[in-house]
Amino acid sequence: MKTLNRILVFALAGSLMSSMTMAEVAVIVHPKNPVQSLTHKQVQRLFLGRSLMFPKTETKVYSIDQNEESPVFSHFYENVIQMNINKLKKYRAYYLFSGKGRLPLPLESSNEVIERVANNQNAISYVNINEVSGADVKVVFTMP
């Protein structure tokens, strides 16, 4: 019984932490990026490589991914981009080897992602919204 309780407590805590961590995802760009906000559809098009420049600008897109093992990666692609990870892997391979362009650059941590976006005017990525505070980046889209 004690063991069962522990499992339930851990499961509940894990679930709470997960929902807290994944409360809201923010799409971020460099502060000098001319884009002020993006629609859901535009975010999907940018991260799937269907648009290679930011909407209504001449600014080329340099997309950055979180680590594939991170919760924010799977949350972002399954909920924001709305493509399951199995399909995403096939899509990405198709995209890369059919000469359509480069894939998002994967970085190890949110800190690296924020630092890279803060230093590259073409960059776009995503982080948990509670990690943006104080960072030199601009939020252009959010989604629970």
């Binding site: 648009s51 290679l52 420049m53 930011f54 909407p55 209504k56 600008t57 001449e58 096939k90 391979a93 198709y94 080897f97 059919s98 000469g99």
Partner: peptide, 28 residues
């Protein structure tokens, strides 16, 4: 522009759904 691209050189003949990645088995 943001949605138009021109290319010159050698590329896969885009005849079918999967012709551009015909030899990349992982994609189908």
């Amino acid at each position: 522009d943001s949605s138009t691209q021109a290319r010159i050189g050698r590329f896969r003949t885009p005849q079918y759904l999967y012709s551009t990645t015909l030899e990349v088995g992982y994609t189908y």
